[in-house]
Design a protein around this nucleic acid. Structure first.
Lengths: 352, 352
DNA sequence: GCGGAAAGTTGAATCGGTTCAAAATATGAT
DNA sequence: ATCATATTTTGAACCGATTCAACTTTCCGC
């Protein structure tokens, strides 16, 4: 039942009466081989059932696996469950596919097991989906393979990282609302504790998540340009997974001067807010405008479709795959811009 | 900047004054090496910055890549978009992870490109997500690596395939409803044309999708047991992605003897039906019960949560990964049972 | 018919390890 | 001490290809 015995290039060469080198050329640089010989070798290969040079041999010789590893400090299911991961991975997969490269998923959720996967995966380099844990970076450094850190939280200057311009993006989001005429805002912030409850600016500045800080700074920058002070804009803590959004909203809507626009630090939260708003009979965008952050696929499907700033998934994918495969690692932290996608949840505020 | 020069096992052995064989043992079978020597080699390795034996060398020698390829005749994004694929892949990923094996995703969507990926992926074998296209099987056979066909549609006896018991599952679903007291049914069928519209049994038997035929047979078998004839149960064609479910429902609800139970050939369709039913003000399960098929994660989240027959994702994953990695290919088509998951969309029919 | 260039082919080295029979060394019993 | 046995270590073969310098053959023009 087992494959009798894999025939190898040498067998073919022998059977065809040529040197192994020539046989190799038949498959890799056929133009170097005389047609007659080429055909003969091919014929023999066919007869013997030789499927072409095995990638294994090639790998060893060339050193290139032609595959990149994607690692996260989460269970593997994370890659298929999280919207951000799915979206990015789709692009990464496509980019790799176009280049004929493979992708290998590796999880490092289980403490000790961690080192193993990263240290033994057969890849040319890694994409690290960080999120604060520098442990991932450390382990990967030990392996000695090139890697790119994605959404790395610490700002160590010497680790190659590709990141997004959180500051510019949220500033853009706020400016969009400002341009529409909004003057009263509320922010739905993540990474600021479980919520619900208003979080003072100092506390926001003190969070250990850089991206949260930057997003807040971006909102404030735009608002300040328009003459709106930080304190005028309440930041409410909600959970990363959308928990407590309803509660936060109740607080926000109860204010005497109800805001006309909502800035959410993630699409997931914005989407949750949309649902909560509908449940409370508040019409979007007529009564209140909402802007998200991330540009997950679901954002285009909501009712109404969500206005948001979209991460440059494709570019992140292209840049990081190229970094690994073309040996073109970013020197430090490289920052990519997001784009504002205006959809149905933003409109001018009702006058009065 | 580039890694000075990768030090290899031989360098370490040399520097430590032992043979390469001993050095190899230090890393792979340390118990064979005297403690003193072992520590010395380890120390030298550390000093030199040797990260342990490179997987590349090991691969060539052992022949095992320790990774399995997952291929579909769809763009790579399919793996992250389709609920079934995501669910199964999550399990596959987990099973592989537990065994320290990697997974590589390969798409064969682009016609000619097809051969390349499958033929050059660095894996020990493939999981083929078929769906009628035997082309995938053919190409993979040419590569000569072990493979398992998942949801293969043709029933060629000699290709190793792992499948689910469609017949038993739908029979179970129908029996559940029957046991609750239902007597009037309608079936939402896929793979029977675009719909909407009732499809006669002969036509259902003639569809080229075996699984659709089997699912219908399962429903009929249970119904017949209970003395309900095939013709008494309308099968309505809807689209695979849930298209036309609303239209089909309108037809079904318009019947003079409105059915009290709905059998859907996929969760996606059932979920869509739930939405359409709600939009039409028909209460589930009070006025009508609904049973799905597949057990996708979303089925647990719907309101009310969907009663369905769940595919044995974990077992499919385990069985197929083991088939590849343990060289334990199914001889032909191997069939796994599904389980009925009773949730909130089924209840006894209102009497009268 | 000859020299030189072009085209085609060969053979050996190499990639980075693992494996295993055989050799060397240590241990224990007598 | 001595021999048998157990523990370590060695060295060379091997895994399946690619690469390239060197060698052979073919082709051309004169």
């Amino acid at each position: 039942m087992a494959e009798a015995k894999m025939i190898k290039l040498r067998d073919v060469a022998e059977a065809a009466g040529v040197s192994q080198g020539t046989a190799s050329n038949v498959f890799n640089r056929p133009e170097l081989v005389r047609e007659e010989v080429r055909e003969r070798v091919r014929e023999v290969a066919r007869t013997l059932g030789y499927a072409g040079p095995s990638p294994k041999g090639r790998l060893l010789r060339s050193g290139k696996v032609n595959a990149i590893g994607i690692a996260a400090a989460e269970p593997l299911s994370y890659f298929f469950a999280d919207p951000w991961a799915r979206r990015l991975l789709t692009e990464v997969a496509e980019v790799c596919d176009a280049r004929g490269a493979g992708i290998a998923l590796v999880s490092v959720a289980g403490g000790k097991h961690l080192a193993w996967s990263i240290e033994s995966a057969l890849v040319d380099g890694f994409l690290l989906r960080c999120g604060g844990r520098e442990l991932l970076v450390e382990v990967t450094q030990r392996r000695g393979l090139p890697f790119v850190a994605l959404s790395l939280d610490t700002s160590e200057p010497d680790v190659p990282a590709i990141d997004i311009d959180d500051f510019g993006a949220t500033r853009m989001a706020a400016r969009h609302l400002l341009a529409l005429g909004h003057r009263r805002f509320a922010i739905l912030g993540i990474g600021l504790g479980p919520g619900p409850g208003r979080v003072p600016p100092e506390e926001v500045r003190a969070t250990r998540f850089v991206n949260v800080r930057e997003r807040a700074r971006g909102y404030w920058a735009a608002l300040t340009e328009a003459g709106i002070a930080e304190d005028m804009v309440p930041i409410h803590a909600v959970q990363n997974d959308g928990g407590n959004v309803g509660a936060a909203l109740d607080l926000i809507l109860a204010a005497e001067e109800r805001p006309t626009a909502l800035l959410a630090m993630s699409d997931l939260v914005a989407l949750e807010a949309l649902k909560a708003l509908e449940a409370r009979g508040v019409r979007v965008p007529e009564e209140i405008s909402v802007v998200g952050f991330d540009g997950v696929p679901e954002a285009a499907e909501s009712i109404p479709p969500l206005t948001t700033v979209e991460q440059p998934y494709r570019r992140i994918a292209e840049r990081s795959v190229s970094a690994i495969l073309d040996d073109d690692l970013p020197a430090g932290r490289e920052i990519l811009p997001l784009t504002l996608v205006v959809r149905g949840t933003t409109a001018p505020p009702v006058s009065g």
